[in-house]
Amino acid sequence: MKRLIIDCDPGNGIVGANVDDGLALAIALGSPHLSLELITTVAGNTPAEVGFNVAKDLVERLGVAVPVVKGAVQALAEPPGPWREALDTRVYTSKLSHLWQDVRQPAHYAPPEQDAADAIGQLICANPGKITLVAIGPLTNVARALARYPEMAEAVQEIAIMGGVFALDDYIKDTNFGLDPEAAHQVLTSGANITLVPMDVTTRTMMTHKDLDRIAVIDTPLARFVTETFRPWLDYSIHTRHLPGCWIHDALVVAWLLNQQVAKAADYFVDVELRPGLTRGKSWRYRQPLRVNVGIDAPAGGLIHVLQKVDNALLLSMIERALT
């Protein structure tokens, strides 16, 4: 049994918001080999309070006793305004908000007084070597937890991160690292045991309407949650990204923890650009020894396990099994 915290920015049921965080939560909740012990939310794909409502609404609908704690409402340093403008309004500028007209909205809940960084740090440090932290949004909460609880870097069993992009056309940076580059840098160089799932591999995942049709016949609350919230996002992705379906980035992180046959990986040093300009928030990776190392400091932290290839058919079958 692997014990998990999932730090996320879910948008299931929210007009124009990505739904892969909700799928990752559903896999974790539906897998008997995983024990989801805490959900925390961070500003990213959705504002932190919106993500909190989505996650809290899901656990209330399922009747499961998983604590949900709201976290950081903005990045350590990156101004939130331009990101919120881009993420929260693009569905309206593309005139596709009608796709969500029949989708149930999550209820509103009052968040607990505890902060997500404290909840993360305290649970991990009270259970050294026992907790895996799944970080599938910007890394603000994780960076704050590491700053408040320095022993957490050694106490955490693993930090499994969805974020970064290394060599994809049309992507200088991804949203998770771009929204908070300082947090990404602090976590990646913390020395913790880290697995990184970048967009280079998650854009090789795919869920189509045909795949969702198979999930739709599974008569469970988790399957209904996924079916209801994925339909509009699939259509939105098909319209705006000209794909046959949608990528399921965050689902791969949880699937990897269940079965490492779902992907291939290799070890790299990884960091994020912090300087102002076009490449701020861009991630990069390298191995040692470098052929030319002039002007390059010794790497901070340690090697990071980076996923590179995915078996999408296996991933989809794992999702269906978890939702059953």
Results as ranks from 00 to 15, higher is better:
residue 304 I to D: 11
residue 324 T to N: 15
residue 254 V to R: 10
residue 304 I to T: 12
residue 75 A to I: 08
residue 63 G to E: 11
residue 91 V to G: 03
residue 227 T to Q: 06
residue 29 L to C: 07
residue 55 A to N: 06
residue 147 A to M: 11
residue 30 G to T: 05
residue 321 R to K: 13
residue 297 D to V: 02
residue 266 A to Y: 00
residue 214 R to A: 15
residue 242 H to Y: 05
residue 243 L to A: 10
residue 38 L to W: 07
residue 129 G to Q: 08
residue 322 A to Q: 12
residue 223 A to P: 02
residue 227 T to C: 04
residue 300 A to M: 09
residue 114 Q to L: 14
residue 195 T to M: 15
residue 156 V to Q: 01
residue 36 L to H: 05
residue 165 V to Q: 07
residue 222 L to F: 14
residue 129 G to M: 02
residue 243 L to E: 12
residue 310 V to R: 09
residue 26 A to P: 01
residue 198 P to F: 10
residue 126 A to C: 07
residue 284 W to V: 12
residue 288 Q to W: 04
residue 248 I to P: 00
residue 156 V to R: 08
residue 317 S to M: 05
residue 305 H to R: 14
residue 65 A to M: 02
residue 55 A to E: 07
residue 165 V to I: 12
residue 92 Y to I: 00
residue 250 D to K: 15
residue 58 L to K: 09
residue 53 N to V: 03
residue 70 K to A: 11
residue 290 L to E: 09
residue 20 D to G: 13
residue 38 L to S: 09
residue 75 A to P: 05
residue 42 V to K: 09
residue 251 A to Y: 12
residue 133 L to Q: 00
residue 90 R to D: 05
residue 291 R to A: 14
residue 150 P to H: 06
residue 264 K to N: 11
residue 206 M to S: 09
residue 249 H to E: 04
residue 181 P to H: 08
residue 258 L to C: 11
residue 292 V to D: 13
residue 163 G to P: 01
residue 263 A to L: 11
residue 63 G to M: 04
residue 225 F to K: 04
residue 45 N to Q: 13
residue 272 V to M: 14
residue 263 A to S: 13
residue 135 A to P: 00
residue 102 D to P: 01
residue 194 I to D: 08
residue 293 N to G: 10
residue 280 R to Y: 03
residue 305 H to L: 05
residue 107 A to W: 01
residue 313 A to L: 14
residue 312 N to F: 04
residue 221 P to I: 13
residue 130 K to I: 01
residue 71 G to F: 06
residue 263 A to Y: 02
residue 139 L to V: 12
residue 64 V to G: 08
residue 192 A to P: 01
residue 23 L to S: 09
residue 259 N to D: 15
residue 169 D to Y: 02
residue 279 T to H: 11
residue 44 G to L: 06
residue 128 P to A: 14
residue 3 R to K: 15
residue 261 Q to A: 15
residue 173 K to W: 04
residue 74 Q to F: 02
residue 61 R to D: 01
residue 177 F to A: 11
residue 49 E to D: 15
residue 25 L to Q: 04
residue 198 P to V: 13
residue 67 P to F: 02
residue 150 P to R: 05
residue 307 L to R: 09
residue 198 P to G: 10
residue 86 A to F: 07
residue 217 V to W: 07
residue 47 P to Q: 11
residue 209 H to Y: 09
residue 148 R to K: 15
residue 248 I to C: 13
residue 211 D to H: 15
residue 318 M to G: 07
residue 147 A to Y: 02
residue 100 W to H: 08
residue 260 Q to Y: 06
residue 205 T to L: 13
residue 322 A to K: 08
residue 39 I to F: 10
residue 293 N to I: 03
residue 105 Q to C: 10
residue 230 F to G: 10
residue 63 G to A: 12
residue 296 I to W: 01
residue 285 R to F: 03
residue 300 A to I: 02
residue 70 K to D: 02
residue 111 P to V: 01
residue 27 I to G: 09
residue 131 I to G: 02
residue 27 I to D: 03
residue 69 V to M: 04
residue 320 E to Y: 03
residue 109 Y to H: 07
residue 234 L to R: 00
residue 305 H to Y: 01
residue 49 E to A: 13
residue 319 I to K: 06
residue 267 D to H: 13
residue 236 Y to M: 12
residue 139 L to F: 06
residue 55 A to F: 08
residue 127 N to M: 05
residue 243 L to C: 00
residue 77 A to Q: 13
residue 85 E to D: 14
residue 80 P to M: 10
residue 102 D to K: 14
residue 66 V to T: 03
residue 284 W to E: 14
residue 267 D to M: 08
residue 184 A to L: 08
residue 112 P to M: 06
residue 137 G to S: 15
residue 203 T to C: 10
residue 314 L to F: 04
